[in-house]
Simulated assay, not measured.
Amino acid sequence: MRISNATRVLAETQDEYHAMAIKDEVIEGVNHMTSVWEPTPSELKMLNEGGAVVLTILGYGHPPVMVYTQPAPGEN
């Protein structure tokens, strides 16, 4: 899913990865890179059946991350 007001696309020219649109922001002096993810119908089914979200970080250090939900487009 493409984030509104994306400022750049990561891995755009790296065929081994899927390109990911992100929005760069500075919030209270902290740099943020935000992307939007939408589960496929089979992933949503798995989550509704008690499955979990998995986050993988490449490398040896784990940067701070945030994972949260947002309403569907058009909902407040």
Rank of each mutant, 00 (worst) to 15 (best):
D24I: 00
P64Y: 04
A21W: 12
G59H: 10
V67C: 15
D24C: 06
H18W: 01
P63G: 10
E25T: 11
N48E: 03
D15G: 01
T34F: 12
P64E: 10
A21T: 02
V30L: 13
D15F: 00
P71M: 15
V9W: 01
G29K: 03
H62T: 05
M66T: 04
V67E: 12
Y60S: 14
E25S: 09
P64L: 04
E28Q: 09
T40S: 15
R2E: 14
V36L: 14
E75P: 01
A72R: 07
T34W: 07
G61D: 13
S4N: 06
M46H: 12
V67F: 15
D24M: 09
Y17V: 01
H18R: 06
I22W: 00
G29Y: 13
H18M: 01
V9E: 13
G51T: 01
A6S: 07
V26S: 09
A21L: 06
D15K: 01
L44Q: 12
A72K: 07
E16Y: 08
M46Q: 06
H62R: 06
T7D: 04
R2P: 03
L10W: 07
R8K: 14
V54T: 13
Q70F: 04
M20C: 10
M20E: 08
E28W: 11
E28N: 15
T7M: 12
T34R: 13
K23L: 10
V67D: 10
E28K: 12
I22P: 00
E75K: 06
V36I: 15
Y17D: 11
E12S: 10
T13H: 11
I22T: 03
N76P: 02
V54P: 02
A11W: 02
P73D: 15
N31T: 12
V30W: 11
P73F: 04
L10N: 05
D15S: 12
L55W: 02
T40A: 13
V54E: 15
I57E: 08
E25K: 07
I57G: 09
E16S: 11
M66H: 12
A11Y: 06
G51C: 02
K23Y: 02
